[in-house]
Amino acid sequence: MMSKSTMLSGLGFALTATTALAGDPVTYQLDWLPGGDKAPIYVCVDQGFCADAGLDVTIASGRGSSDAISRLAAGSSDIGSADIGALMAAKAQEGVAVTAVMSVFNKGPHAFYTVKDSGFDSVADVKGKTVATSPFTSSNVYLPLVLEDVGLTEADFELTKADAGALGPMLMTGQVDGIVAWMTDLSRYTGQGRDAGKEIIALPWSAAGLELYSASLVANDAFLAERPDVAKRFVAAFKKSVEFCQTNPEDAAQSVVNMVPELAKDDVLGSLNDTLGLIFNEVTEADGLGVFEPGRLAATWTRVSQAQGLDEAAQVPESFVTRDFQPGGEG
C-alpha cells in the first residue's frame, strides 16, 4: 500500500490511471503544493481512511486558492481545499458552482514575520517599515483590513512583492523589516532564521482582531448533487483524518513523507504542528470541528466583502456553505 502510493505519486501522471483500489474515484484538489499543512488528505489515503470509506482518491496540487476553485468549478477535480474568502469572492463575482462543505481553519493563517527585537513587535509597528509579500497570497486581500483595525493605511509603510521562496532570505538578509506569510510556515521560518543566526517571530493577524474562517473543504456542486453519498463518505473520512493529525502528528507527518518523499519529515511535522493551532483552538472547543457557525460565517463574509469591495447585502452568507454533508448533517 505504502510503496504503491509512493510510486504512484512519483509518477504523478499515472495517478488517474489507477484502478487498483477499485473504490469510488474522487479527485482531491490542493490549493497549493504538498506539505505538512495539507497532511489530512495524505493521512486519509496513506492510513487507509479513504479506502475504508470506499474511496479511491487522487491528489492534484494547485497554485493558490483561486486556481483550486477554478479547477473545481471546471470539474477537473471534485473536492478540495481553498480559502473560503476566495470562494466567497468567486461566488459573488463569477457565481462559480463550488460550495464549502466543512471548515478546516477557523482562524486566518495570515501573519507578519519579523526579526525579534527589531522594533516590529506588533501589527501596529508596521508603520514606516518595509514589508515583502508574495503576489498571489490571499493574505494581500486582508492586509487593508488588518491595517484599518490598527488605524493605518497602505500609505503608512512600504510594501514590495516577491516570489514566495524569496521572502525568507529577504527577511534574513535585512532587505525588508517584515514579510507577509502564513502561520503554517512558522517552524520553517524560525528554522531558517536559526540557520542565519536570527530569531524570527510571527505576529498573527488574528491577534489584531481578524477573526474569520479560512481554509475550508470545498466541492464542485455537480459532484455534491450527483454523488452525495460519495461526498458524505469523503467528508467523514477527511474529518477522521484531521482528528488523526491532532492525535498522531508523527504518524501523520510520516504519511505525507510516504507519499511525497521529496519532503523531509521534520519539516512536515513542524508545519503540521503550526497548522494544528489554526484547526484546533478555542473556537473549535466552542463550536466543534468542521462547523460553520453562522455568526462567524457572517463575520467572515463582512470582512471579505469589505476587503474585496463587494456588496455585502447582495449575498446571504449561508449561500456559500452547505452543512448537508457533514456527519450527522441534515439530508
Partner: peptide, 20 residues
C-alpha cells in the same frame, strides 16, 4: 509552474516553496 504534480519544474517550485 502553473499546474502539475510531477516534473522537474514542479520539483523546483515545490522545493523552493519548502525552502529546500
Amino acid at each position: 509552474f502553473c499546474a502539475s504534480d510531477a516534473g522537474v519544474g514542479y520539483f523546483i517550485q515545490f522545493s523552493t516553496s519548502m525552502f529546500k
